[in-house]
Design a protein around this nucleic acid. Structure first.
Length: 121
DNA sequence: CAAGTGACTAGTG
DNA sequence: CCACTAGCCACTT
């Protein structure tokens, strides 16, 4: 199950539970279909906060490795289709691989083809 | 309760 | 296309 940001009993984690829209972000992101992507802004909008895109990113940043198995954070990109700089603990290329694995195409600049794969929550 | 922070976005030069 | 700015808002300290 989700640890960290969900405030579960992740053995010894002394982080207090975050019962706000963080879980809401995860719930929504979890529904992003395989092979599709969406943006921070779109998620924020779907949650009723059109201007909270940064918080969405922050929520995903709070995910632990274990959480990543449940929340497809790799399917979240910035508005222009640019991949997140800090995905997977700052290891570059990982997110791109995972998306490519799902059949997502990229343009020459390495940006996701939103026109083909964007998913509106 | 105030200040700091950031996986964002849209606008400008 | 790149660099910088100003809004934005939940969460931490």
């Amino acid at each position: 199950m989700l640890s960290g940001a969900f405030g579960t009993q992740c053995a010894g984690v002394q982080r207090p539970p975050q019962r706000s829209f963080f879980p809401a972000v995860y719930e929504l992101v979890r529904r992003v279909p395989h092979g599709r992507v969406t943006t921070y802004g779109a998620v924020a909008r779907a949650l009723g906060m059109p201007n909270a895109a940064r918080q969405v990113g922050w929520a995903l940043a709070a995910l632990s490795d274990n959480d990543s198995l449940v929340v497809p954070a790799h399917r979240i990109v910035s508005a222009g289709g640019v991949l997140s700089p800090g995905f997977a603990h700052g290891v570059p290329g990982v997110q791109r691989d995972m998306l490519a694995d799902e059949g997502v195409c990229f343009d020459r600049a390495g940006r996701v083809c939103l026109a083909r794969h964007f998913w509106e929550p």
